[in-house]
């Protein structure tokens, strides 16, 4: 085995979900028929619980475009898309050394606030599980919703046909912000 290129491009969680869906991964009873291995299903099951579940290519492109002005590193943008942080403090942890990069603390605070609002506006909220929402989890980012995919499966599959093979271009082309 020869590793030609260890890093041939990063993928967002959404792109991985999309790829697995194009292979036929779903949450309904057809999952046993699909050509998806058990280990791939484990990844899929994890990812549909995250913010990646409801995202689309347009959302991500839109977000990447809009946050170009902040000059974030590629990895940071990727991390924001994956985690979908909606509070300033979440942004604080993802964006490293913000105080020095954005001048001072107050400026960084403003940037974080704008970013948090941008995330809220451009990226769709993760699925929420009606049962677990009642308690302390209110407003939490990542709760699960298994049912979602059953409804959208039809359109995912039709989409899968033309999406195949294009997936890697999103990150590569648009995320050269660093």
């Amino acid at each position: 085995m020869k590793i030609l290129e260890a890093n041939a491009g990063a993928l967002t969680n959404y792109e991985v979900v999309d790829f697995l869906r194009s292979k036929g991964a779903a949450n309904d009873s057809t999952r046993v028929l699909a050509q998806v291995s058990p280990s791939e299903y484990k990844v899929y099951d994890y990812l549909v619980q995250t913010a990646a579940c409801n995202q689309t290519r347009e959302h991500i492109n839109d977000f990447v475009d809009k946050c170009k002005i902040y000059g974030l590193a590629k990895a940071e943008v990727l991390n924001i898309i994956n985690i979908r942080p909606t509070s300033i403090i979440d942004i604080y942890t993802i964006v490293e050394e913000g105080e020095t990069r954005f001048g001072d603390e107050t400026r960084f605070g403003e940037v974080s606030k704008e970013l948090a609002e941008l995330v809220e506006k451009t990226l769709p909220p993760p699925p929420t599980d009606p049962e677990s929402e009642a308690g302390i989890n209110e407003g939490k980012e990542e709760t699960e919703n298994e049912e979602h995919n059953v409804e959208t499966k039809g359109e995912e599959q039709t989409k899968a046909g033309n999406d195949d093979g294009k997936v890697e271009t999103v990150v590569g082309e648009l995320m050269d912000t660093s």
Binding site: A6, N7, E168
Partner: peptide
């Protein structure tokens, strides 16, 4: 988090 890696294998 997820990356693509290009590999050659015989």
């Amino acid at each position: 988090m997820f990356y693509l890696s290009r590999i050659e294998h015989t």
